[in-house]
């Protein structure tokens, strides 16, 4: 049975007087992959940070599997994995040490053989003794993701996760995310690679200057095209042609439907 994994009600974030996110209310079911798209400065990262509990919203509530970032901070963080656009790693620590630390931080048993196999899978085995400072951008991205993946969180929030990855890495990441979604994890991805988002995501949230301009399933997006009958409209066309004032769709399409 699908249940709402994430419930966001009237979320608003202001930076001083500047509006970043305005009155966002959505709910996402477990097993969904939500693509978050919008122009630069549309409020994608702020929304993601607020959902991850990294910033305190000015107004509204966020619940992930019944947990709130304010009242159940520790449990909340255990359930949520946030990967920022710039992967954050301890520069002096080796690839292998990172996996060891993350396992320990989330109070999980560390299996050396399993971790090595994990690194092998992600093409980091050769670099297992190299400090993070000597890894390429793509490798750092992979390592940051591996650190989060090994603890099997229920919600992944990934900000531009495909940046710096080679085609093989992108494919591998897509497969891994689909695999995790099948297992019941909820995934939120922000990306400007609209083709990837279209392939991967089951739902779409489009933001424009902090306001929701579309929220619904991919099928709903394909139905809503300029001619009203083209079911094969690509996300890219939709993004470029969609007028900002289609907020009505949020109500009509519904949540996670």
């Amino acid at each position: 049975m699908n249940v709402n994994a994430i419930q966001i009600d009237h979320l608003s974030c202001f930076y001083g007087e500047r509006l970043a996110v305005n009155n966002l209310s959505v709910s996402i079911q477990s097993g969904s992959i939500l693509g978050l798209i919008g122009s630069n400065g549309a409020g994608k990262t702020t929304t993601m940070k607020a959902i991850a509990g990294l910033i305190q919203p000015t107004d509204g509530t966020i619940t992930v599997n019944g947990l709130t970032p304010k009242n159940d901070a520790l449990d909340f963080r255990t359930h949520v994995a946030y990967l920022p656009d710039e992967p954050q790693l301890f520069p002096e620590m080796t690839v292998f040490d990172h996996l060891r630390f993350f396992a320990s931080a989330y109070r999980q048993k560390f299996h050396k053989a399993k971790s090595l196999a994990f690194l092998e899978k992600w093409g980091l085995f050769e670099k297992r003794h190299a400090p993070a400072s000597r890894l390429s951008r793509g490798m750092r991205q992979k390592l940051a993701f591996c650190c989060q993946l090994q603890r099997s969180p229920q919600l992944f929030i990934l900000d531009e996760p495909f940046t710096g990855l080679d085609p093989h890495g992108i494919q591998q990441l897509k497969e891994t995310l689909l695999e995790n979604a099948k297992k019941g994890a909820c995934i939120i991805i922000s990306s400007h690679l609209l083709a990837v988002v279209e392939d991967l995501c089951s739902h779409l949230l489009m933001l424009e200057t902090g306001n929701v301009s579309f929220f619904g399933s991919m099928e709903a997006m394909r139905l809503l095209n300029d001619h009203g009958h083209d079911n094969n409209q690509r996300l890219e066309d939709f993004f470029h042609t969609h007028p900002m004032n289609q907020n009505k769709l949020v109500d009509s399409v519904g949540v996670g439907s």
């Binding site: 301890f90 002096e92 620590m93 060891r100 630390f101 320990s104 400072s133």
Partner: peptide, 19 residues
């Protein structure tokens, strides 16, 4: 105290010495 705090201190120190 989360034991990883001590582990992190040790791993970072070791990493710095190695570098």
């Amino acid at each position: 105290i989360n034991p990883s705090i001590f582990l992190l201190f040790y791993l970072r120190l070791r990493g710095r010495i190695r570098i």
